[in-house]
């Protein structure tokens, strides 16, 4: 019974084996490094795959890059340095979170642009004066005639 309880305890004690760790099983001296590793390989895109991150790919290059991320973390590099290392070699392609540059500025500001356009359109639509009561002379004559026709017995 105690053994069973211990097993259950162990199961929930935060000893996590992430999917990526299960493939390569890179040892990390601390939980913090392991978490940064998991975050980095989730954020980096496998250069050979279309829509898979490093964590989810079995491609040779993904394995090599995971090993590189591990090595750099152990060597004490910051997340930013590791992302920069990858970006220097593989360009924007490798970052799922694209950097702001001339070619990605539309991607970043596009939604804001759409919002502004929509807000401007809405403002114009709502602030337009009500058109009722502003019939032209011609329309008023026609209205009078129609009403007179209806009232006729």
């Amino acid at each position: 019974m105690i053994r069973f309880a211990a097993a259950v305890l162990l199961l929930f004690s935060g000893v996590q084996v992430s999917a990526s760790g299960a493939i390569d099983a890179y040892p990390f001296p601390s939980e913090e490094l392991q978490q940064r590793y998991d975050a980095l390989i989730a954020e980096l895109r496998c250069p050979q795959c279309l829509n898979t991150n490093l964590a989810g790919s079995d491609a040779m290059i993904a394995q090599d890059l995971r090993r590189e991320v591990h090595r750099m973390l152990i060597d004490g590099n910051s997340d930013e340095e590791i992302l920069e290392f990858m970006h220097e070699r593989y360009g924007d392609f490798i970052l799922y979170d694209p950097r702001i540059s001339a070619s990605t500025i539309l991607l970043w500001l596009g939604p804001l642009l759409f919002l502004l356009v929509a807000a401007a359109a809405m403002y114009r639509l709502l602030s337009k004066p009500k058109v009722s009561g502003s019939l032209s002379e011609e329309e008023r004559v026609r209205l009078d005639r129609l009403l007179a026709e209806r009232d006729r017995p």
Partner: peptide
């Protein structure tokens, strides 16, 4: 054999 030069070259296959 570890693909390190390849990574420095931005090789992906």
């Amino acid at each position: 054999d570890e693909g390190k030069l390849a990574i420095d070259l931005g090789v992906y296959g």
